[in-house]
Computed example of a mutant assay.
Amino acid sequence: MVSIKTLHGSVQLLLDLTSGVTDITETMHRTVARDANPLNRLRDIAGLPPEERQGRTYRMIQSTTSALQRGLHTSLDRFSMGDESSHLPQNVKVVAALNGVCGDHLEASSNPLAITMNFRNSNGERVLPKSANLSSVVPDASPRILVLIHGLCLSHEYWKGHNEADLGTELQRAQGYAPLYLNYNTGRHISSNGRELAKQLKDLVEAWPVEVEELTLIGHSMGGLVIRSACWYGRELELPWTRLLKNALYLGSPHHGAALAKAGNLLTFVMKKFRYASPFALAQHTSAGIKDLRHGNLLDDDWQGIDQDDFHPDYRKPVPLHEGTRHYFIAATVGKHVSTIPSTMVGDLLVRLDSAKGHHADDLRRLHIRPEDCRVFEKLNHMELLDNKVVHDQILEWLA
């Protein structure tokens, strides 16, 4: 069942896509026309306004698209409010994927599909720290809070996997944790999500029904980077929860970037060098979150003032692991033997082993942990780290 909210956001995104495709087509058309007729080059050199250089047909398409967008907001906004079907698991997963690909655009365009950061309990209900009924939403509140943070294009639903008990409920039964699941827009900059998580953890700890004794954060993929970013900003703001953070676990997190993001960046850079290919370098239109994964950006300083579509070196500011916290790293390889070169290079298909283990040639960027706090699993891919018994058993052993 497709919700009104999902339909509203999808149609708005389709209209945005139409506008974007129109721009690409016009750019290509203008490039070809300019090369075919030297007089058209003089129009560009003369510095004519964009609206005068733009063809009448393209202006008409863009005007029609804008009118449809205004009408869409007027007609569907009031129906989107309180639409419960948007919370169905299948709708949540589709929206999460869209947020990963273009979440920054969804947020900037006020699209109802844009996810706002929130905590969920084991039943999928929203946990609002400043709500008067917080105790009823977390009836089993424990002094030990556990927050699980998903990765790019995923949602809180993915922690459930195929097992009867997910990692959060397993830790609740075994060690008395109160599990919460973060849901957030993975298309935003990692630093934006990190800063917001730092503030939301502050509100959560302050409003928790019982006094909080310790906090544990578990992040899968991008979620691990959001944890490290939140720790940085939490320490900068001297937020109390940073002193309660006892454990942080990273499952397949690309601490020094993801190979797929690096490849996409290189392809975009090359395509932009050719006039006819440049309009089709679609990777330049992907989300800020995806672009952050090229090097593993954690802070605003890592991307501000930088063209992320350019092929630039690693400008990241070194971010050490949060002091006073035990950090655990889990990596995976699809190969049968960790020590082989293919296994090291391919990793879990999305993240290489050296990146997942925090290794780096530069000692300032290398994440120093004890050998017993890092485990590499063979014959597992990136997504299987979320819901695999041997991974869960290792985490239960570490946190015992």
Rank of each mutant, 00 (worst) to 15 (best):
Ala198Ile: 15
Ser278Met: 03
Trp241Ile: 00
Val346Phe: 12
Phe280Asp: 04
Leu282Ala: 04
Asn99Phe: 07
His285Gln: 13
Ser86Phe: 04
Ser355Cys: 08
Ser355Pro: 15
Lys130Thr: 11
Gly151Tyr: 04
Arg365Thr: 05
Leu152Tyr: 12
Pro342Asn: 14
Leu237Val: 01
Gly47Phe: 07
Arg366Val: 11
Gly234Ala: 10
Leu76Val: 01
Leu106Asp: 01
Ala248His: 02
Asp354Ser: 11
His162Asn: 08
Asn193Gln: 05
Trp159Thr: 01
His295Ala: 05
Ala248Ile: 09
Gly55Glu: 04
Gly151Ile: 01
Ile369Leu: 06
Asn118Pro: 08
Met383Gln: 09
Gly103His: 05
Thr65Ser: 14
Gly324Asn: 10
Ala165Pro: 10
Gly103Asn: 04
Gln175Met: 07
Asn111Phe: 10
Val270Ile: 15
Ile149Asn: 03
Ala165Ser: 08
Arg188Pro: 13
Glu372Thr: 13
Tyr250Gln: 05
Leu76Met: 11
Ala356Ile: 08
Leu267Gly: 00
Leu98Met: 03
Ser110Cys: 07
Lys160Pro: 00
Asp373Val: 12
Ala259Ile: 00
Ala108Ile: 01
Leu353Glu: 02
Val11Asn: 02
His295Pro: 00
Val32Trp: 07
Phe311Gly: 06
Thr169Gly: 11
Phe377Leu: 01
Ala165Gln: 07
His29Arg: 12
Pro279Val: 14
Ala230Phe: 01
Lys160Tyr: 11
Thr6Ser: 11
Leu167His: 04
Ala356Lys: 00
Trp159Glu: 02
Leu237Cys: 02
Arg120Glu: 09
Ala46Lys: 08
Leu113Pro: 06
Asn265His: 03
Leu76Gln: 02
Glu372Lys: 10
Glu107Met: 01
Glu372Phe: 14
Arg375Gln: 14
Pro129Val: 03
Ile218Asp: 05
Ile45Ala: 15
Ile115Ser: 01
Leu88Arg: 12
Val11Ala: 05
Arg316Gly: 01
Arg275Ile: 14
Val346Gly: 04
Leu282Gly: 03
Ala259Asp: 05
Leu14Asn: 14
Ala283Thr: 11
Ile330Trp: 07
Arg43Thr: 00
His73Trp: 11
Ser109Ala: 12
Thr186Ser: 14
Met1Phe: 12
Ser287Val: 00
Gly347Glu: 07
Pro179Gln: 12
Thr25Leu: 04
Gly264His: 13
Glu323Asp: 11
Arg34Asp: 08
Met383Val: 12
Gln308Ala: 11
Ala96Met: 14
Tyr181Phe: 09
Pro49Glu: 14
Ser10Phe: 04
Glu26Asp: 07
Asp302Cys: 11
Gly305Ala: 03
Phe280Asn: 02
Arg370Met: 11
Leu364Val: 05
Ser122Asn: 05
Gly358Val: 14
Ser10Met: 06
Ser85Tyr: 09
Glu196Arg: 03
Leu225Pro: 09
Gly103Gln: 05
His73Pro: 07
Met271Cys: 15
Lys202Gln: 08
Gly161Lys: 00
Leu298Thr: 08
Asp301Arg: 06
Arg366Ser: 15
Pro371Glu: 00
Asn123Ile: 01
His29Asn: 10
Met117Phe: 03
Met28Phe: 09
His105Pro: 13
Arg144Phe: 14
Ile218Glu: 07
Tyr276His: 11
Leu245Pro: 05
